[in-house]
Design a protein around this nucleic acid. Structure first.
Lengths: 125, 125, 125, 125
DNA sequence: GTGGTCTAGACCACA
DNA sequence: GTGGTCTAGACCACA
């Protein structure tokens, strides 16, 4: 269903949260689209319902989904907002890493060079 | 002594490993300088000797320290090697983050702009 | 269960790490196969859980196993990678020994002859 | 004096034993040559006399030295015998490693190739 | 005294 | 129940 493989070292609930967020951001899940119920998804994935519950709770907390009582859970109607949050998180993380590299004596040019390489590689694929 | 605050969520042994690695890389600890003994540091930090032992074990595994039996532990005599490992780790991490941003539609120019900002800020301080 | 004899001079945790790595490489343990839980194996071997924990930690560090939180530990899904590491370690060790023999004046032909003998013996068995 | 650096992870007494054996085998120490006294060497190396005592004991046990009561310790008068022991030890070690590689599926030709490489490299230097 | 190993047992997050 | 972390404390080799 969700194509989630659980052999990772990350806690399952985090994997799920990440995966669903990813699907929302890539358009695999659309705005206001309903998500499977806790029980259904738990059965599908062969996972404890508590684990699904936890992932769904996190998704709601970070604004990826909303719930309508008695109806179920749905993808947010403002995916763009989620994207913005993710972008700013990513930039914050890069900031941390770059600071680390500065402390280690890596120059601006070297960092830029690395970033360029990645863009070249990814652009092709 | 080591100015280690243990209020983080990170396991104590990891905090210690990180802290000492940092001190080695910033020059606060010099090549071949002796580290406090397991028992001494444990007493200083109010922590169990096993926890120190574990951190010291990790430091040795990653090449930050070496131990001389019956004598104690010392900072590696090749700090530069540690630095190289840390740099390549940092670059790998940036790679991951940049890929993430590409997926989110952030352009090359925007990423570069962010990196430049950080360099400007850090260069001043 | 694991047929581990703990009468060696090697630390128990190292014996265990070695034994399990061996079982993985010889196919006695298959990819993604679950390992006994820390507590279970500790009881089986009459050894402290911490000692098992330590061995399991090493196995994870060297990529022989992975752990899924709340579920347990499993044999890596890429045994071939472990094999490659072990081969390169073995070759490095032979290198050291051969250098030693060269220093002692042993000729190329003599070393080769010894290697051939071992292959003959092992091929038969 | 003996050019021994003690920053290794090996116990000092083992380092000393190895170093002196090496000096005997390379001709740096000659047959029947006297060794420094325990006290003298301990002072020279800034090491506990017990440690020297222990190394000297091992050297005598493996036939590298002999002691004349009241006179001191001397290099064996049959260095060739020491060499033979070392050679057979080296061959035994290679045997172990080769067996390991056979278990890992490495072919005879590959091992030979590696040995040849090392000979080529060492022959030049 | 110094590090290395191990036992005994508690507590936590995760499932 | 399962792994991860930590405390408390013993014993050993090495110096």
């Amino acid at each position: 269903m969700f194509g989630i493989s659980l052999n990772n070292r990350l806690p399952i609930h985090e994997q799920l949260t990440e995966k669903i967020t990813d699907m929302v951001l890539t358009g695999a899940l659309e705005e206001n689209e309903p998500l499977p119920s806790v029980r259904e998804l738990a059965a599908d994935l062969g996972v404890n319902p508590n684990t699904i519950q936890r992932a769904y709770g996190e998704l709601e907390r970070i604004g990826v989904t909303y719930s309508v009582s008695g109806k179920g859970r749905f993808v947010t109607d403002d995916i763009e907002a989620v994207r913005r949050v993710k972008v700013s998180e990513g930039i914050k993380n890069i900031g941390k890493e770059v600071k680390e590299l500065i402390k280690l004596g890596v120059s601006y040019t070297e960092v830029i060079e690395e970033v360029r390489k990645i863009y070249d590689r990814e652009a092709k694929s």
